[in-house]
Design a protein around this nucleic acid. Sequence first.
DNA 1: AAATATACATAATATTCTTATGCATATAGT
DNA 2: ACTATATGCATAAGAATATTATGTATATTT
Lengths: 112, 112
Amino acid sequence: MANSKLYKGSLVTIILKLLNESDKMYGYEITQKVKELTKGELKITEGALYPALHKLEAEGLLEVEVKKVDNRLRKYYKLTEKGNKETVSKLQELQDYIKTMQVLVNPKLSLE
Amino acid sequence: MANSKLYKGSLVTIILKLLNESDKMYGYEITQKVKELTKGELKITEGALYPALHKLEAEGLLEVEVKKVDNRLRKYYKLTEKGNKETVSKLQELQDYIKTMQVLVNPKLSLE
DNA sequence: AAATATACATAATATTCTTATGCATATAGT
DNA sequence: ACTATATGCATAAGAATATTATGTATATTT
């Protein structure tokens, strides 16, 4: 997430949405998926990602399952029911934010 | 700016764009204009606004002119030439951010 | 053999915001 | 007349979220 300051606050939304699509993912996989989808424009840093995953787990939005693959550890995360609800809410928040910003930045538009 | 976490990082963009449209504005006026444009959805807090204005001025993006109106002080801010350039850049950043987020959140879209 | 990729983690620091507080004048409501 | 709200500025303490740096460990590529 080493880019424009606007990404601050978006990480949780991104994590939740990706898990919503992919059933279960592990941390490193998330960083790679974001890099791929954004063609390298957005790079999630580990120092931001791992604490965020831990926090979401602590809040009961994610549940974790540890697996050993190729003699290396992977922590697979998946959404809980609570996590599913929060995903919907976060996506709505994002749409609202985008709409609001477009109104502020494009004086021809207006909120209704 | 007592709102969704997504607004973090957007304040400077909002300030610059409003000044770009209105020639010159004072702080309180900016808070009211944002409230009006967003129909109360977004409220800029003074604790965020004033330090941001001071920083932009220190960076040479804004210049200030103090006026006394109705026996009360107003500090009018306007964009410098450097501020104009930064406005263009910040608006581009916002468009890029929105595009990137839509790709991440809507798997049917893609960046080109 | 060394560099890169995979995979996790945390600590120090920076940035940006909220909340709380302070000062001062003007106006509207009771 | 008194009080609340509006106008207008400002700063400090604290929260939230990220960057940068560092650490551990195994696997693969050059």
